[in-house]
Write a protein that binds this DNA or RNA. Structure first.
Lengths: 133, 133
DNA sequence: GATAGGATCTATAGTAACTATAGGGTCAAG
DNA sequence: CTTGACCCTATAGTTACTATAGATCCTATC
């Protein structure tokens, strides 16, 4: 490597797969780094930080579209913070909804599952319960 | 409609979109119904029941692969019920994991979000928190 | 200098579960 | 007989990657 970090090193440093990094570049989320003589990508600290930011957001469940928005916002340093806050709160609300949905689902599936008392599938209460409304 | 239920009627009756029904047919989840003279699909009660079963499972968060398994199992009426039960319990465990993940995530995002006190993006604590580990 | 291995390169296709679009045919009512 | 609602097929797009194939590069060893 002439200079800078190789894609493999960056992958290790950020816990991202190599293919995923290239994918982020292709969709314009991560800027194209300069290349070495051998046409290898050579990353610097700014790339590392940006990728780190992306991964952190993804770990928190933001979609790539949201990450893109957050990245855009983070560049407009003199703009009001409200947009960032709204994005975070919206996402929080979304997570809350998902949790509620899953809990409802869990409850119902548990109810259904408890019907099972062994025996033949022909008499299976689970299948029956899945068929009923 | 010569005879049987049209795809639109079936869609309404089961709360499924027309395109989704055709999609289920294409991937072999729903058997091809006979056609009318005008080449319209004409469904019967068995199709309705099967689609109903599929939707019910989907609503409960089963994947289409799992639905396929359940449908296969439900035909083997003399087989032991254990496989069905295991599928349900596996799914239940999965849901539990997802809930736990989302709760962890919610907690962290809430922590981050509470940092916001208005002001400029340049000083935004949310962006900062998203950048940090 | 030859060679073997690992890492990297590009391009393309596949995944889940649909959704959207284009460009038509069919059917019942007025 | 035309309008509008419904239906048909086929293809491409969505999200966020993952997998594959085949070529190139770099480093180390013989």
């Amino acid at each position: 490597m002439d200079d800078g970090t190789s894609i493999g090193e960056l992958a290790k440093a950020t816990g991202t797969k190599v293919v995923t990094i290239r994918y982020y570049e292709k969709i314009g989320l991560l800027p194209e780094p300069p290349r070495t003589r051998g046409n290898y990508r050579a990353y610097d600290a700014r790339h590392r930080e940006r990728l780190h930011f992306i991964r952190r957001c993804r770990d928190l469940g933001f979609t790539l579209a949201q990450v893109r928005e957050l990245l855009d916002l983070s560049k407009k340093t003199d703009r009001d913070c409200a947009a960032v806050d709204r994005l975070a709160l919206d996402h929080l609300a979304e997570i809350g909804r998902k949790i509620a949905d899953l809990k409802r689902l869990e409850k119902e599936l548990r109810r259904i599952s408890e019907c099972c008392q062994g025996g033949r599938i022909g008499d299976c209460r689970i299948i029956e319960a899945l068929s009923g409304s």
